[in-house]
Computed example of a mutant assay.
Amino acid sequence: MDIETSTPVANLTHAEGLWFKDCGLIIQAETTLFRVSRDFLAMRSPVFADMLSMPTPVDAEMMEGCPFVRLPDAARDVTYFLKALIYSEFFEPWPTKALFPVVAGVLRMSHKYQVDVLRRRALLHLSSQHPMTLDDWDATGKNSMRAHGEFLLEVILLARQTSALWILPVAFYNASTRLDIEILITGLDGRSLETTDVIACVQGLRYLDTTATSNILDFLTPRAIPGCVLPVACAQKRGAKRSEVEAWRVYEPQEDTNPIAPLDMWEQSDYHGVDVCGVCRSYIESFHRSARQSLWSRLPEIFGLPPWAELEQLKTEALN
């Protein structure tokens, strides 16, 4: 139990939907009060069970005749956590959609207070938006949490805090390619990365913007392709398209835009803009797929993380 200086009662508010008058435990987080069942909380969390099993001192703080506990956690996190415990429909298993702040709050609290069922559920939600295969990455689409820039730093912090290292390759890729360098270094909304993670993002970004992007676009290099029926014309068309695509890499900081990241640089529909023979078309499609898969395979290494196979094992152990 965390004992701190009491907050003036006038500033405290009851949490909506989490103040049960017939329950005997009052919890304070920031300026929010929760009144819940002591036995229920102890049954679900071994950490709370240990806290609440301690003999109550004679001079212990009470409120409305109930034991009183202050938590150092954010009131929002405590709200999400308790609602997930009490209301079955509030935080349903994946693939039911869940807002990222809810996932993050439940994961932080369930990890800290050892509520394994909620921890696994939150990790599944987070993992669904941070795939471990290229096919799953492509299927995730633009509407996933990876497109929500305001949460990119928090995902990394959350993965580190809860030892969910398999989240980090995609989380680092997203942060390094979608956030401004200043935000990566100094943080956002009071949240900042550890120095080692900042370095990983910056070094990874240098590789992605140079070597990785060159490798991804190499299928448009106007080289001779065995079996091509129009070698001169096809080479010219590939070269012209390469010049056009290079313009996508332009960085304009004053316009708050970043170059297109290498994994997103070319889509299936873009092939329609390359009018080459069938032999060349098959070649460039195969070459591009291979280059993207090669980059994906190296993604953990680029950011100084264990290989995918090791990360997959960590994920399996955490979710079983």
Rank of each mutant, 00 (worst) to 15 (best):
T31W: 00
R238P: 08
V232T: 14
P231F: 10
M43R: 03
E154D: 15
Q268A: 11
F100R: 01
L52W: 02
P131C: 08
I260A: 09
S6K: 00
L217R: 12
Y251D: 03
E301R: 04
M132I: 14
M145V: 08
T140H: 08
D209T: 06
V232N: 11
T133A: 15
E317C: 04
L12K: 13
G17W: 01
D73I: 01
F90S: 01
L208I: 12
V274T: 07
L52K: 08
R70M: 11
S88I: 04
L134I: 15
A309I: 00
G187F: 02
S163R: 09
C234H: 12
I156T: 03
R121A: 07
D264A: 02
E310N: 06
D218N: 10
A247Q: 09
V106M: 02
S127P: 05
L126W: 08
E194Q: 14
S294R: 14
Y113M: 05
R206H: 08
G141C: 09
L153M: 13
P306D: 13
F303V: 03
V202P: 02
A75N: 09
W248A: 10
L124I: 07
T79G: 04
M265C: 08
V250T: 10
M109D: 10
L157C: 15
R121N: 06
A139I: 08
L188S: 12
W248Q: 02
P222N: 06
D39C: 07
H272D: 14
F34L: 11
A147Y: 15
T7E: 04
L41E: 06
E92P: 00
A171L: 11
E310L: 09
N258A: 07
M54F: 12
V245Y: 02
S128F: 15
F219V: 01
L299E: 08
H130L: 07
A15P: 14
V279A: 13
L99Q: 14
I181W: 10
V250F: 04
A84S: 15
E89M: 12
E246M: 14
P67K: 02
G141W: 13
D138P: 03
K21A: 12
D59R: 00
R249G: 02
I86A: 00
R249V: 00
C201Q: 03
A104C: 05
T140S: 08
E64W: 08
C234R: 12
E285Y: 06
S88Q: 11
I185S: 02
D189S: 15
D275L: 12
Y283K: 02
L71D: 05
G65Q: 07
E92T: 04
A74Y: 14
M43A: 13
L41W: 07
A75P: 13
L205K: 10
M43T: 13
P300Y: 02
D136F: 03
L71R: 03
A200F: 07
V232S: 15
R298S: 15
A104E: 03
S269K: 10
V36Y: 06
R35S: 13
A224E: 15
A104L: 04
P222C: 08
A147L: 13
P55M: 04
S88C: 00
G187I: 13
P226G: 00
H288L: 03
R121W: 02
V202N: 00
A49R: 12
T213S: 07
G149R: 13
A291N: 11
I302R: 06
E30F: 06
T186Y: 08
T211N: 01
F34I: 03
A309Q: 10
S176G: 06
R108Y: 05
